[in-house]
Design a binder for these strands. Structure first.
Lengths: 332, 332
DNA sequence: CGTCCGCCGTCATACGTATCACTAAAGTGT
DNA sequence: ACACTTTAGTGATACGTATGACGGCGGACG
């Protein structure tokens, strides 16, 4: 009967002339003081020769843990969440963990089957605040929240959007802008509420300054329309603060459509500093959010949590990047 | 001793007053003719009440399959591959399969551990042609290639880039362009070789037409430089054909930097029609590639393969989308 | 009345791993 | 020489599931 399928630890044991237990011990790196160097060498060689790799299902069953965590994000068709994934996956890999990602609601079929499927085989959850709805009714697995309200029960890893937004406001104030428009994301998430609150406060704090706000989906057409409404006002803002680079790109388009120059007639700022910010014309003044680092730090916190420790909540600074889309207003 | 951990099928059996086997049979949907309806009902109710969900590790161990497939792409920090993932994950979810994604080389640590980790627990591989290098030395798992040379051994699901590129060439020819520049992706992949070959042939087929080519990374700065080299030539092309929308955005920037108007002085075409194409100014004439559908069809093919059938290779048509970045040349 | 058959369900087992409890042999100290 | 420790390794078992081989219990049929 010819051998079929992948070699098991028993096969390795047979090949090396030892017991399966020994193989397990050696390959787990626990040979020190229990197995002689010679035997350990022989086992490793046999494993190598046979191309042995442990069966993860068996290991998971035995250990009661999967060394896999779930990442919940609204979508992966987005550079921002793609970067978060990349950072999270890298950090996880360094600790021998895998990441399965559940984009919600992108993949939500009629049933919640895809999530259910993923959910059975995970040890913990790393979730974006924007996907919080899907987390209801799940097992109380260890959980870390990304860019979410720090007052929640779970540890959080955040961007310091308040500081970023304050920097934007200060930058525009220094240029002499007094009528500010805010293109706010029509998404119910802590980060956007925070941005709106901080911007309002900053503008209110300056005598003679005013703020008007429109909400928009994070989509180019919608952003363009919303920006159009803002720019159509009799007291047209001289600067448009946008919650996202893509929205800012839409705002630039709206301005151009009205015959306005950016930044000559109206300044525009973005948020995120993804690839898009340098691809559009003019290049966007924006707040750089280190999304990949957010993912990595979030994963690190989750792994700490799984390890029984209590990770501290983290807040990553955003950095104002001044490019070509902001300037002093012509007629303040 | 208080119950700890998740309920098992044994717990359900106990609660329903039947054996564990019966629970397994009922919940697998194989009750017909073997278990009475009354008993089946009782089992299902007990399972529901306890919140039972099967342990996937145990199931995988028993069945020798994981109902999980691996998606290999160069990166997820890209709208294009993000869309492929989304399509693939949706198709997989419909069949109760999970997807674990391995972005390569984004997450490649010093060791190939992250991949190895993922690899142990999968039934098949769906791989982008641009990540082909990482596939060497793996178990001969069922495999479907995305956008790859159809002459390979594995089934492929492709874009018909030849047809798309021919449409671009015809569009530019109809506008009166004769000196064509090609900003080709400096990536060794079938799809780009195909594009270059088709464009060369199309231009060669028209008397009096000429083609110059520069290679570039798919990155905005590099694209800008390469486009600059093309536009600096004494016989400056009147149209720039780009292998990617991002490259096209770079080309537009280079043109503007030289004081050239797009499309007045030079036409530019992109490829992919991702979000970027409508965010830049002018909006790009490009070839729409249905990336999400590619992912979905690829996954469907892989699932067929896992089911023992032999999936047919597929070629998805790309569609020319004419927007504002192309026009007749001023001085042909 | 004996036998056979369909129905309903249980028993036992194996998947591959990690680990606890144990043993046999060799070394150590007095 | 004896008790004791250290070294090197083995045996047995459990994790939770799916399934092939059985078994009891009616009713139907000859």
């Amino acid at each position: 009967m010819p051998k079929t399928g992948r070699p098991t630890s028993k096969d390795v044991a047979h090949a090396a002339g030892v017991s399966q237990s020994t193989v397990s011990i050696v390959l787990a790196g626990k040979a020190a003081g229990r197995i002689s160097d010679a035997t350990a060498q022989a086992v490793r060689q046999a494993a190598d020769r046979l191309g042995y790799r442990p069966n993860l299902a068996a290991r998971s069953l035995r250990l009661g843990q999967t060394r896999t965590v779930l990442l919940v994000v609204p979508t992966l068709s987005s550079l921002f969440f793609g970067a978060i994934y990349t950072g999270a996956a890298r950090a996880a890999a360094e600790h021998g963990f895998g990441v399965v990602v559940y984009p919600w609601p992108d993949v939500s079929g009629p049933a919640r089957s895809p999530f259910a499927a993923a959910h059975e085989a995970i040890d913990g959850i790393l979730a974006s605040s924007m996907a919080v709805g899907v987390l209801d009714g799940l097992d109380p697995l260890p959980r870390v929240m990304l860019d979410s309200d720090p007052r929640g029960e779970a540890p959080t890893v955040n961007f310091d959007v308040a500081e970023g937004m304050r920097a934007v406001a200060a930058h525009l104030a220094a240029l002499g802008h007094r009528r500010i428009g805010h293109l706010a994301a029509a998404v119910d998430a802590w980060t956007f509420r925070e941005r709106a609150g901080v911007l309002s406060a900053a503008v209110r704090g300056r005598p003679g300054a005013g703020l008007v706000r429109e909400f928009t989906e994070i989509e180019i057409g919608a952003a363009r329309e919303a920006a159009g409404r803002l720019l159509d006002r009799p007291d047209r803002p001289t600067a448009l603060v946008c919650d996202d680079d893509l929205v800012a790109a839409g705002a630039c388009k709206a301005a151009r459509a009205l015959g306005l120059d950016v930044p000559g007639d109206v300044s525009v700022t973005g948020f995120d500093d993804m690839l898009l910010a340098k691809a559009v014309e003019p290049e966007l003044t924006t707040v750089r959010l280190p999304a990949e680092e957010l993912g990595a730090r979030g994963m690190a916190a989750l792994l700490e949590l799984l390890d029984g420790r209590r990770p501290a909540s983290v807040s990553l600074p955003g950095e104002l990047v001044v490019r070509a889309s902001t300037a002093a207003p012509r007629r303040p």
